[in-house]
């Protein structure tokens, strides 16, 4: 079964003056466990697409199924994780309490179990921020905050992880390191990831496929398979000539649609 399937999907916003279509005619099949990166000019509908998959927004027309079900079913089963562009940690909760939010929202006041505490510790370790459990978000750097947001999204072991420019605000070194960690997490968990970015390098480095969206009219402009240029477990060298070529090819596509 595919992780995400869409047919003739139109998405956008309903307004008092009629619907405003953002992306139309989206036909996509994303395999279970795939890492798909999404590029496109600002305002073309990348975030909107993720919002439809996460059941934050109803499609205007067409079909979408997530893990063979309606997005709302998958959402209520907690099988979708979302990482926002700004980390969106709740400032009054410690790192630990932020990551445990999914448990507390789900189980009411039965509270946090020892196994949950253990899982928080493991996640922080996996993301290289062990020992920060008791800190408040204000006491973290931007990179640390983004890692905590990823830990929270991973906490309920989602089958689908949606990431909206999660590393956009970070310096290049931190971003590269987090890319590496994210790939590790992905290899270990087998989660399907949809990852929006403005960096061509990041898109190529992370994705097994890269999707390029265009604006006016919004639609899928290109869907480029990178499996030929990468190892089976999705590794590549940034300076590999095949990868460099790919990047300039994608840059041309992007320039045409921007």
């Amino acid at each position: 079964m595919n992780a995400i399937e869409t047919k003739a999907l139109n998405i956008g916003y309903r307004g008092p003056k009629g619907d405003q279509t953002v992306l139309s005619g989206v036909d996509l099949s994303i395999a279970d466990g795939e890492f798909l990166t999404i590029l496109g000019p600002s305002g073309c509908g990348k975030s909107t697409l993720l919002r439809v998959v996460a059941d934050l927004l109803e499609p205007l027309a067409g079909d979408i199924s997530v893990l063979g079900e309606d997005p709302s079913v998958i959402r209520s089963r907690r099988q979708v994780g979302f990482v926002f562009q700004e980390s969106t940690l709740l400032p009054w909760r410690t790192v630990e309490a932020n990551i445990e939010l999914p448990v507390q929202v789900g189980r009411g006041r039965t509270g946090v179990r020892d196994s949950d505490r253990k899982r928080v510790k493991d996640l922080l370790e996996m993301l290289g921020i062990a020992g920060l459990e008791k800190r408040y978000p204000k006491q973290l750097s931007g990179g640390q905050r983004q890692r905590v947001a990823i830990a929270r999204a991973l906490f309920s072991e989602p089958r689908i992880l949606l990431m909206d420019e999660p590393f956009g605000a970070l310096d290049e070194i931190t971003r590269d390191r987090l890319n590496e960690e994210l790939l590790d997490v992905w290899r270990r968990t087998g989660t399907t990831i949809l990852f929006v970015t403005h960096s061509i390098m990041e898109a190529v480095y992370l994705g097994q496929r890269v999707m390029v969206l265009g604006a006016n009219p919004g639609r899928v402009m290109a869907l480029r398979d990178l499996k030929g240029q990468k190892t089976p477990d999705n590794r590549c060298a940034r300076e590999d000539p095949a990868i460099v070529n790919l990047m300039s090819e994608l840059r041309k596509t992007l320039e045409q649609v921007s």
Partner: peptide
């Protein structure tokens, strides 16, 4: 974003208020 975060977690109105 904060509201959407709680929506993705299928939070009840009760959770929305208290948390």
């Amino acid at each position: 974003n904060e509201r959407e975060l709680l929506h993705i977690l299928s939070a009840t109105p009760w959770d929305n208020f208290w948390r």
